[in-house]
Amino acid sequence: MTAEEYAGLGGWTPEKLGLAGEVRAVVAAPDPVLSRPGPEVDPTSAEVVRLAADLVATMRVSPGCVGLAAPQVGVSAQVFAVDVTGHPKAVTVHGTFVLCNATVVEASRWKAGREGCMSVPDLTGDVKRASRLVVEGVLPGTGDPVRLVTDGFEARALQHEIDHCAGLLFLDRVAGAHAVYQRKVYL
């Protein structure tokens, strides 16, 4: 399935499978699940479909959240959700989607940008990422393969979540301590 076909379907949502996900607690560093590469999953298994629905539900109730990976809810697995809809930095938007066993197949136009993470709530950091990206993965429930071509902020979000599935945090990608910042708190 191409990105255009996928976007035409409105992305992946648990509602399309008749599911209502449950909100899960987000784990914070240094929880060991965040530094362990997750195994590949069977995207058609009921457990993975439920996890996908829970990731979307948790992401939706978390202000400012544009992506959430299974390790962030304590599950070592290669599953993540992304939705950059409405974010001011987003140009290319594929809506809400969940991918299993995703891999980057092409990456270009590398740029540094500021990132934050729900699992590292007090810090942000400058991370160099590809601003043009092609990712292949599998949809939960159907097992349909997907090839997403994206750029900019959505590309950054995808790489951030793929890193989580590989046991990496954005802190593992910063150039050094000089590129890590205390998160600003707005009252």
Rank of each mutant, 00 (worst) to 15 (best):
G167V: 12
V75H: 13
T58M: 09
V180T: 09
A3I: 02
D144M: 13
T96E: 15
V98I: 14
C117F: 05
A107W: 04
Q182R: 15
P88S: 12
V135K: 02
I162E: 00
A53Y: 12
P37F: 06
G64M: 08
V73E: 10
A112M: 06
T150K: 01
V93E: 11
G8D: 11
C117R: 02
Y6I: 00
E161W: 00
V79F: 11
V61T: 15
V48H: 10
E15A: 15
P43D: 12
I162G: 04
V120L: 11
L68P: 02
S62T: 15
A166V: 00
T58D: 13
A52K: 08
T2R: 07
V135F: 04
L139E: 15
C117S: 14
R129E: 01
K16H: 02
C117A: 14
V104R: 03
S35H: 10
E15H: 07
G38L: 05
P30N: 09
E115S: 04
H87I: 04
L169P: 04
P39L: 14
L158E: 00
C65I: 07
A166D: 11
P43H: 12
V174E: 01
G137F: 00
V127Q: 00
G18L: 08
K111F: 04
V134E: 01
D42P: 07
V61C: 09
Q159N: 04
D83I: 05
T13Q: 10
A3Q: 02
H178V: 09
A102N: 03
S35F: 04
E5G: 06
T2I: 07
D83E: 09
V134Y: 02
T142Q: 06
C117Y: 04
V23K: 14
F170K: 01
H94N: 08
C100W: 09
V84Y: 02
E115Q: 11
D42W: 14
R109M: 03
V185Y: 05
K128Y: 00
D172C: 05
G125H: 03
A70Y: 04
M59G: 11
W12Q: 01
S119P: 10
P145Q: 09
E161D: 09
P71E: 07
P30H: 07
D54I: 11
V180Y: 01
A107Y: 05
G167I: 03
P30F: 08
A177G: 02
V26D: 07
G64T: 14
A81N: 05
A25C: 07
V33H: 08
D31K: 11
V127R: 04
E4C: 03
V127E: 00
A29W: 06
V56Y: 12
K184F: 09
M1K: 05
V185A: 08
T44W: 00
R147Y: 09
V79A: 06
E40A: 15
A25V: 13
L34E: 12
R129F: 01
A29T: 15
L169T: 11
K89F: 06
E22T: 15
P145H: 10
T58A: 13
G176D: 00
G11I: 02
E154N: 02
R156I: 02
T92W: 00
S45Q: 13
M1P: 10
V135S: 03
Q78D: 01
G38W: 00
E40W: 12
E115F: 06
V27G: 09
V91L: 08
L187N: 14
L51W: 14
L17Y: 12
N101W: 04
R24D: 09
F97Q: 03
C165I: 07
G167T: 08
G152K: 07
